[in-house]
């Protein structure tokens, strides 16, 4: 498979809702290899969603071991047809996106999420993500729903970073 090209704003495909994956076949696995290579091709990228390459399918790959500053992570995961089952907590954090070059902005996300997703063979798994990794997963699932972080921007000066340090007694 040729190198996948990353679509950038305002490509209209980035605004479309991706389809569920129904066939867990060789073609899917070939695409996942290519998507994984596209993730590696970008410097410091920690996640990629299939629709960012014009493939409108509900597939994301995350890999927070690539974060510039080390954070706890589950390594490289392929999440197919991910479904959020629960979330809690809210935090403002800063996001950037391969599809939105040269911009980072503040977005509110849940601090803890649980989800169900299939792997490349179709097997269902349950996951629990926190903090940075939870943010990455939510950012990627947004891509599957045709949303960019630009659609969720909040004020640059909103100050909810690390809200744990504000409310130690309530945690």
């Amino acid at each position: 498979m040729a190198n996948l090209e990353i679509l950038t704003y305002p490509d209209e495909r980035l605004g479309r809702v991706s389809e569920r994956v129904e066939r867990f076949d060789e073609a899917l696995r070939t695409f996942i290899v290519a998507l994984s290579q596209a993730l590696d091709a970008g410097p410091g990228g920690v996640g990629i969603a299939a629709p960012q390459t014009g493939q409108l399918q509900r597939i994301v790959i995350i890999d927070c071991s690539r974060a510039r500053k080390p954070i706890p992570n589950k390594g490289r995961l392929v999440l197919i047809n991910p479904e959020l089952t629960a979330w809690k907590g809210m935090e403002v954090g800063r996001e950037g996106c391969l599809s939105v070059p040269n911009y980072t902005g503040n977005v509110i996300r849940a601090t803890e999420i649980t989800l169900q997703a299939q792997d490349e063979c179709g097997a269902l798994h349950d996951y629990c993500f926190q903090g940075y990794e939870a943010r990455v997963v939510q950012h990627e699932i947004d891509h599957l729903d045709g949303l960019l972080f630009l659609d969720r921007l909040v004020s640059r000066r909103v100050d909810l970073f690390q809200r744990k340090t504000f409310l130690p007694s309530k945690e």
């Binding site: 970008g42 410091g44 990228g45 920690v46 996640g47 990629i48 995350i62 974060a67 500053k69 954070i71 954090g93 800063r94 996001e95 950037g96 996106c97 391969l98 980072t104 940075y132 943010r135 990455v136 950012h139 990627e140 970073f161 690390q162 340090t165």
Partner: peptide
């Protein structure tokens, strides 16, 4: 003065 690190995700 309070300092908070900001981790930017890039994906």
């Amino acid at each position: 003065a309070r300092l908070e690190p900001i981790q930017t995700i890039s994906c």
